[in-house]
Amino acid sequence: MTDWQALQQKSFYEATARERANGIVDAASFTELAGPRDRMSSPHLPALGEAIEFDDGVVTGVGRVGKHPVFVISQEGRFIGGAVGEVHGAKMVGIFQLAQQAYAQLAAKGADSLAERLPAVVISFETGGVRLHEANAGLLAHAEVMDQIQNARGKFPVIALIGSKIGCFGGMGFVAAATDLIIMSELGRLGLTGPEVIEQEMGREEFNASDKALVYRTTGGKHKYIMRDCNQLVEDSIGAFRTALASALQQPYAEIARCRRIGSEALVDEQLALAELSCEIQPQDARDVWAYFGNADAAAIPEQTTADFLRTVRRRP
């Protein structure tokens, strides 16, 4: 396995799912579960003549961050665009179940021990959502993961890391939105309907998916950070993601849960007010929204380094 120290410097954007899984937890603490040797590949793809992967496109396991057991799900975008099929989804659910077990064991030891060693589920998303070859099983997998996130509420944090090539779209965009905390890099992209699907359905005039700058302005990390759809923006390295994760886990659970962007009546009101605002200001481009929130030189934002951006940016109040 690749040297952990070297992984810290590596681009999160370019890293494989296995590299991310190993690098986002403490050195040499990651143990892969249901790994390649278990050969849990898709039972559906061979009949369709589609290539299979031993891990069905997702690396799952457990590691440590400080005293916290961290249950890791890391998706591989290079395998069918990180799309979620039956086995891939079942592996995700399995990780949540293990986290629930760890939570129950620690809770039985008392509140102090639990707070000190509270488990967490961390998902490194790289996916376009449902694997269409396994449509129903893939959709069901999304529902099951969503269920697991709800079961975890009030118990332990579920944290999303988004900074890989494919981004996080489709059904998994909903899943990411339902987590407690979202950490992104500016190269990360998050959305529901992916750019190419919008273009296909609504036409090129509505959204030109080959205009990369437009895609990043609309779905990229900086925009999501301004809009508060993501909580933290970090540099593009595995180490930067790990540092942000480690400092988040030092917070008490209630603090992490306060980062949720959906899931309460107050937050629904906030989102609805935002929809009203969008009707009122009729933005033609993400830059209009940035300017509205007080970023005078909105056009310069895409060119800024992450550090400069974080120093000067004005976010949605």
Binding site: F54, R78, F79
Partner: peptide, 29 residues
Amino acid sequence: HSGVVGSGDMEVMFERCMLDGEIRFKVVT
């Protein structure tokens, strides 16, 4: 184990086992 089954790519797993001096390949393509 190494590699990712990306487009135009492959993964490979080696497992040591007694094969009387032979090497066996299974390719799924």
